[in-house]
Measured scan of single mutants.
Amino acid sequence: MRSPRTRGRSGRPLSLLLALLCALRAKVCGASGQFELEILSMQNVNGELQNGNCCGGARNPGDRKCTRDECDTYFKVCLKEYQSRVTAGGPCSFGSGSTPVIGGNTFNLKASRGNDRNRIVLPFSFAWPRSYTLLVEAWDSSNDTVQPDSIIEKASHSGMINPSRQWQTLKQNTGVAHFEYQIRVTCDDYYYGFGCNKFCRPRDDFFGHYACDQNGNKTCMEGWMGPECNRAICRQGCSPKHGSCKLPGDCRCQYGWQGLYCDKCIPHPGCVHGICNEPWQCLCETNWGGQLCDKDLNYCGTHQPCLNGGTCSNTGPDKYQCSCPEGYSGPNCEIA
């Protein structure tokens, strides 16, 4: 077999650049994923090309098998939009790539799955459409700058595939050579959905506090709520009108309100015997008056200043008058 000629994957630097851009600016990249293909086995019993010639040398006159050299087999892949009637021409609109030389006439790579040499990765940054057309071609490398490479066999497949970690196996069982391969579509990290176009990256910072479920939905951490999980859940009972919080379990009062639940107004400074319904009010309790509710309107009842059976009459805020019984006098009937 001729010395292998290595063929790198098509578009790999571009895919790395796209992945970097997506990581830095995830909101700009609407989708991100990759179409993967792995060659599993190849069977070319006679070492022939599609045109019937030998990959190298002439045929044995007896059994008609190619004798001089085995094929240097590598694969090309073209991925494009779905076609009900597949045409070989036209651009590979979803991507293209190739393997290096991975074997001779016949080989089996099932035991070495995950080997990069027999895998082609086609990254995409558009919403995966699920339906596709795939062209797979086996080629013989001439290892010659003058002699062109020659095609051994080709296969085409049109179908639908959803993103999954599971592989789907396909076979080419007609023509001079048979080969088996597997395909799958996977979303990149933080991308979800059938189109790999739903973005969700767990975070716990100013912009949100959430994890992501298997469908890419945000699940808020304990103590947080809202579409972006950036609204803290305040202390139970915290007034929704007069209290708020920036951290879970907190209850910060608005100006003019106080209390554990921010449901108590702050009265006017200096208010003595008054209450409030709104901040800075001083609504006097019964029998109290004045701007600060510090004037006693029922001095008689509060202090009972009249002595010796005198009768007390309220005459104004903090004022009274005693009517003394016979034989007593003085402001409080204290003089006998």
Rank of each mutant, 00 (worst) to 15 (best):
S164N: 05
E228V: 11
K198R: 06
C306S: 00
F194C: 09
Q214E: 10
P227S: 12
G259A: 03
S141T: 03
A58D: 10
K27T: 05
Y132S: 08
D149A: 14
D213G: 06
G330R: 06
N143T: 13
L49V: 04
P129L: 12
Q291K: 11
S329P: 08
E48G: 06
D318E: 11
G309R: 10
Q258E: 14
Q182R: 13
S41Y: 04
A211G: 07
N108S: 04
L292I: 03
M160L: 13
G90A: 15
E326G: 10
N60K: 10
R201S: 07
K264T: 06
S313N: 10
Q43L: 09
Q214R: 08
D149H: 09
F199V: 04
G159D: 11
T6K: 15
G310V: 10
Q291L: 05
I151L: 15
E222D: 11
L307V: 07
S244A: 13
P91R: 09
N217T: 13
A23S: 14
G103W: 09
S156F: 14
C324F: 01
D63N: 04
F207V: 13
I102V: 01
Q50H: 10
L18I: 15
L20M: 15
P13L: 14
N173D: 08
D72G: 13
G8D: 14
G208E: 05
C276S: 02
T133M: 09
Y210F: 09
D144A: 05
A31D: 00
R2H: 14
Q281P: 02
H242Q: 11
V176G: 10
H157Q: 06
P61S: 14
N215D: 04
P269L: 07
Y74F: 14
W288R: 04
G56A: 03
V77E: 01
C322S: 01
E278Q: 06
M225I: 07
L109V: 14
S32A: 02
E180K: 07
Y320D: 03
G193A: 08
L18R: 01
T145A: 10
S93G: 10
P91H: 10
R184C: 04
E38V: 13
D140A: 12
T219I: 12
E180V: 11
K80Q: 09
Y181F: 10
E228A: 11
N115H: 13
N217S: 14
H303N: 07
V272F: 15
C312R: 00
V101A: 13
E180D: 14
C300F: 00
R59Q: 10
C78F: 02
R130M: 07
S239G: 12
S93R: 13
I275M: 00
N115K: 06
G316S: 07
F206C: 06
E70Q: 14
H273Q: 08
P305A: 03
K198T: 13
T133P: 07
N105S: 10
C251F: 07
Q291P: 11
A23P: 00
N118Y: 08
G56S: 04
N108H: 14
I102F: 09
T186P: 00
E81Q: 13
K295Q: 12
G249A: 06
G114D: 09
F107S: 07
C282W: 00
S98A: 03
V146D: 07
G310E: 06
N287T: 08
D204E: 11
R117G: 04
R117L: 10
N308H: 08
L21H: 10
S150C: 07
C284W: 01
P305T: 05
Q254P: 09
P331L: 14
C265R: 02
H178D: 10
D263Y: 04
N105K: 04
P163S: 11
C78R: 00
V28A: 01
K319R: 13
N173S: 12
N60Y: 15
I152S: 04
C200F: 05
A26G: 02
I102N: 02
C92R: 10
G95S: 01
C253R: 01
L260R: 09
D189G: 05
A88D: 10
E285V: 00
G103A: 15
L109I: 06
P305S: 14
K171Q: 13
I39N: 01
